[in-house]
């Protein structure tokens, strides 16, 4: 079973081919930081952003500076260690590369947006110094460390502890903190601002969506293999965890929107987070508890096909790893 302790190496027959397929699809979506065009962002930062929006972006960049690094750590220290399936580990290795890529992307972003070296240093220190960012980091570290002592998932209880860690990082960190961050980026993009950030974020978003799906697949598999894995207490704990994550994120929102940004209100953010949290619950097969609807119409843009203009953006739609051989009889 997928959460049994050990180091399974057997790829044929493949027990969980879904992870291998995910690995293959992820490779097709390879992108590089060099493809992101930041040229308009610098102009926007200097000339177009209001002071309130600039404050928002500075905070956001400070969060991005360390966010993906923490996720990578958890991936190596916990996820990779306990998910005992070689095909899933292949996927997780790929995911680790993507996290590194995101770290590089946000580093480049930071270097581009913040020219002053001492300010850059401060952005990395935000995780200790800025209360709204520290609170989120503390939340992540709490759950990361919660299974630090676990060497092997040899009891059902330990498996549950592990699943809680997976849920934390997939549903609360990638699925809620990052989704909140994406909302700020897409809000600015809906106003035509910071196209480079938005372009790179599109790709990050695409990767993160896949990470969440893979983590959910692990949880789903574990539950299918052990139908008694989830208990009412655990379900209640998950809801509590999401509530706590929302509160962490709300403190961040208060800070970000402190100077007043027309079109993004603090109460709107709460409603949005609750709506996202309900979706995370639904991903886990649990009932929604907040009953909020998405208040941000600009997020709907995210759900719809993009029709970019190549003078303006580089399109993110192409695939790599195309195969086949020359022939003339195929349907098209």
């Amino acid at each position: 079973m997928i959460l049994d302790p050990g180091f399974n190496l057997t790829l044929r027959p493949m027990k969980y081919p879904v992870f291998f397929e995910m690995y293959k699809s992820a490779i097709k979506n390879t992108w590089t930081v060099e493809e992101v065009d930041f040229s308009h962002d610098v102009t926007d930062l200097k000339a177009k952003l209001t002071p309130a929006e600039r404050h928002l972006i500075n905070r956001l960049v400070a969060f991005f500076a360390t966010g993906d690094s923490i996720v990578s750590n958890n991936l190596v220290l916990n996820l990779y260690k306990h998910v005992n399936s070689p095909e899933a580990r292949v996927y997780l290795s790929r995911q680790l590369f993507e996290e590194a890529l995101h770290v590089e992307f946000y580093l480049t972003l930071l270097d581009t947006y913040i020219p002053e070296p001492s300010e850059r240093e401060k952005a990395f220190a935000a995780v200790d110094n800025i209360p709204s960012i520290k609170r989120k980091a503390d939340f992540m570290f709490k759950w990361m460390n919660s299974i630090h002592e676990l060497d092997a998932l040899d009891t059902q209880d330990k498996k549950r502890q592990f699943v809680m860690n997976v849920v934390c990082f997939a549903s609360c960190v990638e699925g809620l903190f990052f989704f909140a961050a994406f909302a700020y980026v897409y809000f600015l993009r809906s106003k035509g601002l910071l196209n480079g950030l938005a372009g790179g974020t599109n790709w990050v978003f695409r990767d993160e969506s896949m990470h969440i799906a893979a983590a959910m697949e692990v949880v789903k598999t574990a539950r299918a293999e052990d139908p008694t894995l989830f208990t009412p207490k655990m379900e209640a704990d998950i809801v509590e965890m999401l509530k706590e994550a929302i509160e962490c994120e709300m403190q961040f929102a208060q800070d970000l929107l402190d100077l007043g940004v027309a079109g993004l209100s603090v109460q709107g953010m709460r409603q949005y987070l609750q709506c996202v949290a309900d979706q995370r619950l639904a991903n886990l097969g649990l009932k929604p508890v907040f009953g909020s609807k998405n208040p941000f119409n600009f997020m709907e843009l995210q759900d719809v096909q993009e029709l970019a203009n190549f003078f303006e953006r580089r399109v993110s739609a192409y695939q790599v790893g195309v195969t086949g051989s020359v022939g003339f009889g195929e349907d098209f």
Binding site: A183, E217, V219, D303
Partner: peptide, 22 residues
Amino acid sequence: RSRPATKIAKATVTAVSTAAPA
């Protein structure tokens, strides 16, 4: 023109519940 190999989670609609044991 082609379409990307993986896609983004819908932010505003829930398509399917992915981790239910179904």
